[in-house]
């Protein structure tokens, strides 16, 4: 039994559920994410006020029965802006990671499978990209492209492509030497088919785990870029943008900074918990026996 790879469990789903059940914390993460996603989707219904409506009579009001989380310097409701901001943050986080995942995994599988000069060139570029701090790279790209929702997604996607290349390449190299890939070549399958049908499904779980962890990073990067004014332009509510605006009045109106910060913290925490749980679920070393 030692030489044989551990046979996959009879049903992937049930094994995943079993691992998630063993670690109670993972359900906390999943629950938190479900709430955050629900808030983002139903933001217009849940918001007690219009997030863009300014009201000079209610400037910088602390949390009260009417404005649960207070108002900002234009008299806008912080809670409503927080709900609508979730939409922007999650959209950017999700789409940026999706783009990075597709581009990065494709390049990684190609580099791992083709090898040679192509591999060296791709990995050289990846190493250069990884040597920049994420925020600095995002800052450069966002500054070059200009501030808009699409450009922010592109900027964050570019900063997060490199890790996906790495994550896809290493298991591709291992898969390439697997007997069933060799057998596929002996059956006359095209390289594209071998990569897409025979290698990719076998390395997808690794990629998905990394995606969940990098989505947390994408949301953080988005908030950071918005904070320094390279995000989606006002008055569109974003979490980072709200912190930036609240920063000016941090000493007199603490609620402007604390609540969006908490929102970012909880979202990032939930994604990290989920990512760790998924990683444990697919890692045979950690899976172990009860």
């Amino acid at each position: 039994m030692t030489a044989m790879p551990a046979p996959p469990p009879a049903r992937k789903q049930s094994a995943l559920l079993a691992t998630l059940n063993r670690n109670r914390l993972s359900w906390v993460g999943i629950g938190m994410l479900a709430v955050i996603f629900a808030v983002a989707i139903f933001a217009p219904l849940l918001s007690p006020h219009d997030p863009l409506q300014q009201n000079i009579l209610h400037r910088l009001e602390p949390p009260s029965a009417e404005f649960w989380l207070g108002t900002d310097s234009y008299g806008r409701d912080v809670l409503s802006r927080l709900f609508h901001g979730a939409r922007i943050s999650l959209t950017i986080g999700f789409l940026a990671v999706l783009v990075a995942m597709i581009v990065g995994s494709t390049l990684g599988v190609l580099a791992g499978y083709i090898g040679g000069i192509f591999d060296q060139v791709v990995m050289g570029i990846v190493d250069v990209m990884l040597s920049f701090p994420t925020l600095l790279l995002g800052l450069m790209v966002a500054a070059m492209l200009g501030a808009s929702l699409e450009n922010l997604i592109i900027a964050i996607a570019i900063t997060e492509t490199a890790p996906f290349v790495r994550v896809a390449r290493a298991p591709t190299i291992a898969m390439k030497r697997q007997d069933f890939v060799e057998a596929g070549r002996a059956l006359g399958f095209s390289p594209g088919r071998i990569m897409g049908v025979h290698i990719l499904p076998n390395i997808l779980s690794d990629i998905v785990v990394v995606a969940s962890l990098w989505m947390a990073s994408a949301i953080r990067t988005e908030a950071s870029l918005s904070f320094i004014g390279l995000g989606v332009s006002p008055p569109t509510p974003t979490w980072g943008g709200m912190i930036r605006e609240g920063f000016e009045n941090i000493l007199s109106a603490w609620w402007l900074v604390v609540f969006p910060s908490l929102a970012i913290l909880l979202t990032v925490l939930a994604l990290n918990i989920l990512g760790d749980a998924l990683r444990d679920a697919i890692d045979p070393k950690l899976r172990g026996e009860e």
Partner: peptide
């Protein structure tokens, strides 16, 4: 031309039945 012959006119079977099949299909 070779890939049209492989698996079609000439087929090969390998030593390790445990690892010669794709586990995800």
């Amino acid at each position: 031309e070779m890939s049209r012959i492989r698996g079609n006119d000439i087929a090969m079977i390998f030593q390790e039945p445990m690892t010669s099949l794709n586990p995800t299909m």
